[in-house]
């Protein structure tokens, strides 16, 4: 899952990013509203975590601007200010959820998965597709009921495909979701992970759309 973290405190940002990465998210971090805008223009994100106090503007304004432009990704607001009015304002501006600092990393992860589930219209944590079952929160996959060991990138790849079951994703889009914007990767890195995923879950799991990209296969 490709996640945009907008947080100005470097230490908090570093911790949240590290924690989310350990939970299998691909995290890009922006320290300012301007950097967040730039990141959003450069890539697609599955969800965002937004701190309200930003040095170059209120996070709430940023949020309202995004929603006005029709950017509908699930968004969780982090805030250290507990005034009820702040929270209400955040939700009204278009946040899907909020967490008060200091929060529990596990709770943040659980809420993010819940947001993803909701945005994909699912009510259950597990996704079943053909013979494949996948649990995004734990990253565990099963093929015909048998557990399958997946690497971190493979899990992210599978989760991305399952999150957008009908979309055709370009190699570039998949690369952003696997590695984020900052990491330099070799051009065939995505191909390697698709190859591994097909080997473990059956060749039908990823379908190649020639000249455009990939999408979830019929498995």
């Amino acid at each position: 899952m490709h996640l945009l973290l907008v947080e100005d405190d470097p230490s908090v940002a570093h911790g949240v990013a590290a924690g989310l990465r350990l939970h299998g998210f691909t995290v890009d971090h922006a320290e300012t509203a301007a950097a967040a805008q730039a990141a959003l223009a450069a890539s697609e994100f599955d969800l965002a975590v937004l701190d309200l106090g930003l040095p170059d503007g209120d996070g709430m304004d940023l949020l309202a601007r995004w929603r006005a432009r029709g950017i509908g990704m699930p968004l969780l607001v982090l805030t250290a200010r507990d005034a009820v009015s702040d929270r209400v304002r955040g939700l009204q501006a278009g946040a899907d959820d909020y967490l008060l600092k200091p929060f529990d990393l596990d709770e943040l992860v659980a809420r993010l998965h819940a947001l993803l589930r909701r945005s994909a219209g699912r009510t259950m944590d597990r996704i079943s597709h053909g013979g494949v079952t996948f649990e995004p929160s734990s990253g565990q996959a099963w093929l015909h009921g048998e557990p399958v060991e997946l690497s971190r990138r493979e899990r992210t790849l599978l989760a991305t495909l399952l999150q957008h079951p009908r979309a055709i994703l370009s190699a570039e889009q998949l690369r952003d979701r696997l590695y984020g914007l900052e990491q330099e990767v070799e051009s065939n890195a995505v191909n390697v992970h698709i190859h591994h995923l097909r080997r473990k879950l059956g060749s039908g799991i990823v379908e190649t759309v020639r000249g455009i990209g990939y999408r979830l296969g019929s498995a």
Binding site: G19, L22, L100, K101, P102, F103, L105
Partner: peptide, 21 residues
Amino acid sequence: AHELRTPLTAVKTHLQVLRLA
């Protein structure tokens, strides 16, 4: 609240990362 919660959040998050790692 903001000034105290921010470092507290950093500490808490990093401790959880530490546990995970």
